[in-house]
């Protein structure tokens, strides 16, 4: 009987606790500034050393020739596992994570083509709710 009463009071106590659920997209979880979201490349810093291609565990990075005669890394988002090895290997810091994991492609061919993310598309999203 006492056990059942204890169970009941524990359940009632929860009525006065704040909810843990997140009302997306009005609220977003705050994961801090280290969150490994999508990866953007700053072409002014890139030295085309191809180290990111060498360390990639998923073979997601391919270099492509641009009009300025230089090669830049493009990421196949169908293969990328967002481990961040390329960002850690980059000697100049030109590859960086953005705090955004909510990008949607509507065309499968565009999604799988190794390409550079447009920084405007990958703008950081406001993160408000923190459970801890």
């Amino acid at each position: 009987m006492i056990t059942h009463l204890k169970l009941f009071t524990t359940a009632v106590k929860q009525l006065f606790q704040p909810p843990l659920t997140v009302r997306w997209p009005e609220e977003r979880r705050n994961y801090g500034d280290r969150m490994r979201g999508f990866i953007v490349n700053d072409r002014s810093k890139c030295i085309s050393c191809q180290l990111c291609e060498a360390v990639c565990p998923a073979k997601a990075i391919k270099f492509h020739l641009e009009a300025d005669g230089r090669r830049y890394p493009g990421i196949d988002w169908g293969r990328c596992i967002l481990c961040g090895y390329c960002v850690d290997a980059c000697p100049t810091g030109s590859l960086q994570h953005v705090n955004n994991t909510e990008i949607v492609w509507t065309d499968l061919d565009v999604y799988k083509k190794p390409s550079e993310m447009d920084p405007d598309d990958a703008a950081p999203l406001p993160a408000t709710k923190s459970l801890i």
Binding site: L20, G32, R34, I81, C83, G84, H97, S130, I132
Partner: peptide, 19 residues
Amino acid sequence: MDMYAEVFAKIAGARTTIA
């Protein structure tokens, strides 16, 4: 468990597969 995921993301950068 999700609170642990949040702390993992803050320290290591990912909720689950932190590498």
